[in-house]
């Protein structure tokens, strides 16, 4: 059967949109402020001309909707960047692959904390035992404290994706299949 004109047209629209979202240059509307206009760099500094503007580096990295507009975890995993893990040869580079499901979230979806994404960037000692106790459920954190820069808020809201991205952490709907998964440590 010959496809109708309407179906053909829809296929064409799908193709155009599909291609445009695949081409980074076509769909990328990200903008970064230049160092001259960012409000903190001194315009009279002669070295301003030789510094790299954020857009030069960040436009090459996978997009995100907030923060630096860069999905840093993806950038690392997919090899866009290869940041060093250590300066000293004796440093033990530790990565832990386990998830923690946090269920005390009032009415919001549960929080799924991925150790892997965090330890690919950070060392255990950055969080344990100072900010978070190792024993699951024993750290009395809440959003008031986090919004004031404690616990997760030490990084999220300052350098890791901002605290306005609620569903990135609160990612497991209550009563979903994932919500009944056993909690690993």
């Amino acid at each position: 059967m010959k496809p109708s004109r309407s179906v053909m047209f829809r296929m064409l629209v799908g193709l155009i949109l599909g291609v445009s979202s695949w081409c980074p240059w076509a769909a990328d509307s990200r903008q970064w402020t230049s160092l001259e206009k960012d409000g903190i760099h001194d315009q009279e500094n002669p070295a301003l001309q030789v510094m790299q503007p954020p857009a030069d580096a960040l436009r090459l990295l996978p997009p995100d909707s907030a923060g630096n507009q860069v999905n840093w975890v993806k950038a690392l995993r997919d090899g866009y960047i290869k940041p060093r893990t250590n300066l000293y040869e004796t440093t033990e580079v530790r990565v832990l692959d386990s998830n923690i499901l946090m269920k005390r979230t009032a009415e919001l979806p549960y929080v799924l904390f991925p150790h892997r994404a965090h330890t690919e960037w950070l060392d255990c000692s950055n969080c344990h035992e100072k900010l978070f106790r190792s024993k699951t459920g024993s750290t009395p954190m809440n959003m008031f404290a986090i919004l004031q820069g404690e616990y997760c808020g030490q990084c999220h809201g300052a350098v890791a994706f901002p605290l306005t991205e609620c569903t990135r952490c609160h990612s497991v709907p209550r009563n979903s299949a994932g919500a009944s998964q056993p909690v690993s440590k």
Partner: peptide, 8 residues
Amino acid sequence: RVRFRCKV
């Protein structure tokens, strides 16, 4: 962070 992980 393009060049170094946070842990460094």
